[in-house]
């Protein structure tokens, strides 16, 4: 079934929408969630939550690209879950590693704990990602959006792990500079 067909089912409040979503995008969502959570059981629950959120969001929303829409919901729900796990010291997997890596991007300032509006930061990050060359953009998003482990990332992109690490390090340095220029460290 096409995206538009599935979305129409959601608008008609037809429960087959969830079945069709799972048929077409179930594997995709499980891959995103499984990568972030490193647990099939948690991933399955997260995917079901993704369907529930989608059911609640459509209508009124009518996404242009259902795959991207589901991907974002699934990613954010998985991140929420992995943060809770990490807070309870029950394992945070790649989340903890990615956090450590990202520490170097936090601009230094007089108020390191300065509260930042999430949407303002998101807009700035979006501009930064758009400005990256294609290869770097893919590596950055795979690593920090989908939290893909460096070893998997290297294998998927046909690169050596060292190359990936060095490239990511350079991107993070660029990001820090970008955030400082945008005034996040002031």
């Amino acid at each position: 079934m096409t995206d538009q067909g599935i979305i129409q089912l959601y608008w008609n409040r037809d429960e087959r929408a969830i079945q069709e979503t799972d048929t077409v995008y179930g594997a995709y969502c499980r891959t995103i969630s499984g990568t972030i959570l490193c647990s099939d059981e948690d991933a399955e629950e997260c995917v079901n939550d993704t369907y529930l959120h989608t059911w609640n969001a459509i209508p009124p929303q009518r996404p242009d690209k259902l795959r991207a829409f589901l991907g974002r919901i699934c990613r954010n729900l998985s991140v929420d879950r992995v943060r809770k796990k990490a807070a309870k010291k029950r394992g945070g997997g790649e989340w903890n590693v990615a956090l450590e890596e990202m520490e170097m991007c936090v601009p230094g300032g007089e108020e390191p704990e300065q509260v930042v509006e999430n949407d303002v930061l998101a807009k700035s990050l979006e501009a930064f990602v758009r400005a990256l060359p294609e290869r770097e953009r893919i590596l950055f998003l795979r690593r920090y959006y989908y939290l893909q482990p460096v070893s998997d990332l290297a294998a998927a992109c046909g690169l050596r792990e060292n190359t990936v690490n060095v490239t990511l390090h350079r991107i993070r340095a660029k990001l820090k500079l970008h955030l400082e220029r945008e005034g996040f460290g002031l």
Binding site: K65, N76, V115, A122, E126, Y146, L175
Partner: peptide, 23 residues
Amino acid sequence: MKAEDILIALGDIDESLPQICDE
């Protein structure tokens, strides 16, 4: 700002951007 803020805010970027990873 904390490192966590950056990772969370990444989830709110334009949802079509991460689709490049499918290429």
